[in-house]
Design a binder for these strands. Structure first.
Lengths: 154, 154
DNA sequence: TATTGTTATACTCTATAACTATA
DNA sequence: TATAGTTATAGAGTATAACAATA
């Protein structure tokens, strides 16, 4: 089941269900679940893809730094990286300067995997926004871009 | 140095993180977490509020019907309703026609609680959209409204 | 002694399944 | 026998805390 805020059916205008936070929460969960089902076939979960994307945007100096960037616990990065390393999507290389650190780098397969995921996301974008006009789509994308930036995201 | 497809490493425009589903997912989680922290002081979690909102929209014939409407398991409605009943926000009344059924109704306190939550959500809306122009806010709200409807939400 | 990565453990959320009572 | 509600159990996901290696 996939409804973070517990949705209902048929609201009086101005109620909780018409607020932006409520709709963002519900639609966000829907989008995440949908994306999760899509990448499941690649052996991935959304967080794995998030790690790939984070690495693609900028190499990580260490797993801890990456964890901070992703907003998750360092121990979670360990298991995510374990999976991705097992898939050949990334390499762990000990930093010779500081052998405590593991530098993570995307392999060509990792980059290709990420591109596949990006393609899936683009297809889902079209599915999700099929009910919008082109102007609405553009406006939504721009608004989300601003909100993401304000939230400290790429 | 970009390749033929224009996808160089570290390049943001066109990447996964700029898709609508990715941003919806991340921002939705952020919004849900933020709202959860806000209603925590009222002894509630987002799903409790979702149940209140669902009941406010239309009385439920039974807990099972309500569970179906909210898209959650019936057993979850039990525990959510337990909490809300303990807070005096709703009443369980056995249906005399079919004593297996419990009819849930919002109490005045329940309605007031929901209004408080709606007020909190509205405040968060302003916080979230503070970086947008008024036109952008309106466009975002309208786009989310359409998407919510298409997803079968109120 | 402090920090990185790892492992072990625990906690939250929620679904499924078993059970009770009504029908 | 079938259904509504409840309780018991289990699994996913993730954080916290203990631990090992390195600084």
């Amino acid at each position: 089941m996939s409804d973070v805020n517990g949705a209902a059916a048929g609201e009086s205008p101005g109620g909780l269900t018409s607020t932006t936070v409520f709709r963002l929460g519900v639609l966000g969960t829907l989008a995440g679940d949908r994306f999760g089902r899509e990448v499941e076939g690649l052996g991935l979960k959304p967080k794995h893809v998030g790690l790939l994307a984070a690495l693609d945007l900028a190499a990580a100096a260490s797993q801890q730094e990456l964890a901070a960037r992703m907003g998750v616990a360092p121990s979670l990065v360990v298991s995510l990286a374990d999976t991705l390393e097992g898939l050949g999507a990334l390499q762990r290389i000990r930093d010779p300067q500081d052998r405590r650190r593991q530098v993570l780098t995307l392999t060509p397969q990792g980059r290709e995997l990420l591109e596949r995921c990006t393609g899936l996301a683009r297809t889902l974008d079209e599915e999700f926004t099929a009910g919008l006009t082109q102007d609405q789509r553009t406006a939504l994308a721009e608004a989300l871009r601003v909100l993401a930036h304000r939230a400290g995201l790429p």
